[in-house]
Computed example of a mutant assay.
Amino acid sequence: MAGTKAAMEDYSVRMGFVDDYICAICDEGGDLICCDGDCGRSFHPTKPTGEASHCDTLGLSEEQLFLCENCESKKHQCFVCGELGSSDQGGGGQVIIQCNKRGCKRFYHPECLPLDINNLPGDSCPMHECYSCKKKHATSKGNKTTGKTKGKETCRKKHATSEGNKTRGKSKGRGTWEMDLVLCRRCPKAFHRKCLPRKIYGGEGEIQRIWETAGGTVFYCRDHEMVENLRSAKRNRIKFREEKPKGAAENQSVEDGNK
């Protein structure tokens, strides 16, 4: 158990590592500042700092200590649907919750989480288990109930075996790296390295979806459209404020004029 606990602590550090070293807007590194609020995200603060990565940046006039607009208004984006929700725990206005795993900090509407979230400790989000393994496990359970199971071994069992061999001095030096979780930058999907789809590495008409950087692994699952001339998926994810419905400004002007 001691070995497993240590591995989980290392994973928590790795998980937050990438977020600290790349911009939340463009997913590239460089001269960044970190939000002092709950989200802990990093951003290119000024136009010059984002030129190399073609980042929209925060548009600040100078680098400074700051709270991003989400943390200032206590309205954060759900990492599933992308819509804003109140994270303010005071006054009963909270409609969005934050994962309590150290280094994660992602927000969710409770109704957007998959049903099996109840099997995870606390308010942990789906990014703490391999998406591929969960699918195999669900299929295996379904086949078992219908008497068709072939006894397929999930990666979770393989990981336990690897940890057991490691504590007994039988590790071959492969299991730990293969079982590292690689996290999608755009949605709550994570994969063990050995479970990653082969096509994400590019080639044969496929666009590369994974890069090893100084800050860690940057990865986008196949659910997201990539930008060919940039090393990222479409950069339309960040939302700082709620958009007014079309015609809202005109209607407001009419209402004001009728007062």
Rank of each mutant, 00 (worst) to 15 (best):
S87V: 12
E163G: 05
K75H: 13
E242Y: 09
G257T: 14
S162Q: 10
L32I: 08
Q89W: 11
I22G: 10
N236S: 02
C112T: 02
A160Y: 03
A190W: 05
L181Q: 12
N119S: 11
T146D: 09
K158D: 07
R185Q: 15
L60M: 15
G164A: 12
M15K: 08
S86H: 08
V80L: 06
H224Q: 09
S86F: 04
N165Y: 09
R185G: 12
C130L: 03
R102L: 02
C130W: 03
E243N: 14
S132W: 14
K194C: 06
S162Y: 12
G91H: 12
Y21H: 15
A138M: 15
G247I: 01
L58T: 10
G169H: 06
L58P: 07
T217L: 13
E228C: 08
D88E: 04
M179A: 12
C104M: 00
E206V: 03
G90M: 07
C155A: 03
P121Q: 09
R209C: 02
C68N: 11
K136G: 14
D116L: 06
K135Y: 11
E163W: 01
L183P: 00
K157G: 05
C71E: 02
D123I: 03
C23P: 07
N165H: 08
D19W: 01
K135L: 14
G91M: 03
P121D: 10
A2G: 03
A233N: 11
K199S: 05
L84S: 04
S171M: 12
C184N: 07
R102E: 08
H224N: 08
G93I: 06
E129N: 10
E204F: 13
G203K: 05
L230E: 15
G93A: 05
K134N: 15
S162W: 12
R193D: 01
D27R: 13
K244Q: 11
F79V: 01
P188A: 00
G215P: 06
A190P: 06
G103K: 00
C78W: 05
C184G: 02
M1Q: 05
H54I: 11
F43W: 12
G29C: 08
T213H: 04
I238R: 11
C125Q: 00
N236I: 00
G40R: 02
A2W: 10
G175M: 08
D27L: 11
A2N: 10
A190D: 09
L84N: 07
S86I: 02
R209N: 10
C23W: 08
R231M: 12
M1F: 09
C125Y: 00
A248E: 02
K75Q: 14
Q208A: 06
I238T: 14
C26D: 00
K172E: 14
C71V: 02
G216E: 04
C23T: 09
C187L: 05
A160G: 13
M226T: 15
D256F: 10
I33M: 04
T161S: 12
S140I: 13
K74G: 03
I210K: 03
I22V: 15
N100L: 06
Q252R: 09
S253E: 15
R14D: 06
D56W: 09
L67W: 14
C221I: 07
E242S: 14
D19F: 01
